[in-house]
Design a binder for these strands. Sequence first.
DNA 1: ACACTTATTGACAATGATTTTCATTATCAA
DNA 2: TTGATAATGAAAATCATTGTCAATAAGTGT
Lengths: 140, 140
Amino acid sequence: MSAKLWLTQLQENGYRLTKARSAVVEIVQKSLRALTPVEVYDMARKKYRALGLVTVYRTLEKLEELHLIQRVHQPMGCQAFISAGEGHQHLLLCQNCGQVAFFEGDDLDILTKSIAKKTGYKIQEHWLQLFGLCANCRVN
Amino acid sequence: MSAKLWLTQLQENGYRLTKARSAVVEIVQKSLRALTPVEVYDMARKKYRALGLVTVYRTLEKLEELHLIQRVHQPMGCQAFISAGEGHQHLLLCQNCGQVAFFEGDDLDILTKSIAKKTGYKIQEHWLQLFGLCANCRVN
DNA sequence: ACACTTATTGACAATGATTTTCATTATCAA
DNA sequence: TTGATAATGAAAATCATTGTCAATAAGTGT
Ligand SMILES: [Mn+2]
Ligand SMILES: [Mn+2]
Ligand SMILES: [Zn+2]
Ligand SMILES: [Zn+2]
């Protein structure tokens, strides 16, 4: 999905198209690693100087609401966002450079059924996240 | 593990045994759901009125350091702690009452190997967390 | 039991992150 | 072009966490 499409999505949901939003979207959409609000602010201000940090927060809020981005939880902190995968996907994070890869096709059915039986819980959701080293960082 | 054992652990690691710590430990150790620092503060103050919130933070810090508690990440927030499981375990959270259950015996080897091959990543860790309804909340 | 050393405490202040308020501005439908 | 109003950035407010510090209490040795 391109930045243009994100902006369209915003418009289609009744939000106006502004320079501030464009700048934020452009940064977040193409980032390969999760960014914090301040990081987005710093980077996006290179494209649009007048941008305010508050607007970054507000824009991220809307992008999350539209499922265009998702929050990334990490040992070091949980306030970073990354362009969201489509459908049911999971994250694989490089512990060195932060690069995020998506993967799908996990089959946790057997596991969840077994856990459900053992614990008596009705399982409705799961979070799975892998950590490691990306191809680049692995060699260096 | 009992509250008494936690206090012993603290002592064995050179920390002194105090009323403040006892109160915090007693609350956190027996809780079936993850508690935030303020929740711990409110609950522990019923046992020890003079307790300060700062001490709760400091005690939780030490308990985490000794792996007696662990941070719980949830959609609503990531600043709650629960008595830690032993060894490699995962969490199962009740979305209604917050009750936490541990489980082990997940076998993600096949999955991680497949992902490693596909992505080129070297996988070193994983986070797995299940969400659902506990036996009680399921019926009510 | 007592005295001594020093870790621990709670109050308060400082910081950092996020949210709210508000007057001004810019978007977009008419 | 105009007008209604969503969106903006600055500043202030709130909330969570961390740092400072003088007073206190835990544990050690006597
Ligand atoms: Mn999955
Ligand atoms: Mn596991
Ligand atoms: Zn990397
Ligand atoms: Zn429940």
